[in-house]
Design a protein around this nucleic acid. Structure first.
Lengths: 177, 177
DNA sequence: GACCATATCGGACCACGGTCCGCTTCGCAA
DNA sequence: TTGCGAAGCGGACCGTGGTCCGATATGGTC
């Protein structure tokens, strides 16, 4: 079923595949698709999960600077960099999963994880900031929609990476007394 | 027609009003609505435009710090503050206009204006940054979806304002040599 | 006033996401 | 082997956003 979706997505582009088509391709009824995934976003999320879990593992237990052991600021920039790579490789899927239903992005489990991760690091780097909010603000430029739009407008991936890294470093470098 | 939409939106909530209903309320056919506004987002954009133009005017010709005359950093934070007020007052409408079709937010005229405005100020405050990208990054936390989600999660408006202002100030305060 | 060309309009129509309910199928007990 | 309850399934169905084309109004010309 996920394979069927993956095949059709690859062939026709994510946005041009209806759930009917996926159900047909998988040889099941539409109801079954919905029972399994809840809604359209759920399907995309499921497809992304495998890829995201890889990054999650690296963050939690991998080697620095992505994993534990490096200074907080470095871990943040390493994460942003890695996420942008992931995002860029699967933009369409991300757009689908984040945009399918209102506020979907912020309800997804992985968003929560990224947020907790960043909030923790922000707290370490700059305990004077509102870590909770700042983590959201750092994630905001990673919105799939924005990324898609910027890439479509001619921004190269490296430019986005650099811009975001510089901003994050500036923001999180400990305040001078 | 805009009045009809406004009335129904106010009564039933933006998301619960179908375009059929608006067309009926306005006493015209659905086709007419679409010819005039293109799509659902177009309607919301039209309704927001009046409100946004007020802010646009203040930015371009009003008194400092929103208008010209104040230091760039102050103008940026004044803008973010004012925008958050506007956004908070019309969240539903903003969500509708930004989320209705993929990438809609970044195609809208007013987004372009906000972006140009910020890019100019960023360039003044920190010419070493990628002003174009940084302006997008500053606008990212103003996404209606995020705002809606955060408010729904218990964040007070003032907290969001403060968090964003502090971040913007930190980011744009001229780098020490 | 009669005629026609053109612009504007309205609502039937389509595809899609999402729901729902009747039917099948399966596991188990007698 | 048969009977029965439960669980899982499928596709008919609904509301919505968006398209499209036939009908209608408009206004210009003889």
């Amino acid at each position: 079923m996920l394979e069927a979706a993956e095949r059709l997505f690859a062939e026709h582009g994510v946005r041009n595949v209806s759930l009917d088509a996926i159900a047909a391709e998988a040889g099941v009824g539409k109801g079954t698709v919905f029972r399994r995934f809840g809604d359209r976003a759920g399907l995309s999320v499921a497809l992304l999960d495998e890829r995201e879990q890889e990054l999650q593992a690296k963050i939690l237990t991998g080697p620095p600077p992505l994993g534990p052991g490096a200074p907080a600021v470095d871990r943040v920039t390493a994460f942003l960099d890695a996420y942008l790579d992931l995002l860029d490789r699967h933009v369409e899927l991300f757009v689908d999963s984040e945009n399918a239903s209102e506020g979907a992005r912020y309800r997804i489990g992985s968003y929560r994880l990224w947020h907790r991760h960043l909030a923790l690091l922000v707290e370490q780097a700059r305990s004077d900031l509102d870590a909770d909010y700042t983590a959201h603000a750092l994630l905001a430029p990673l919105a799939a929609d924005l990324h898609h739009a910027l890439r479509g407008a001619g921004f190269e991936l490296d430019r986005l990476k650099t811009g975001l890294r510089v901003a994050a470093e500036t923001l999180l470098r400990p305040a001078r007394s």
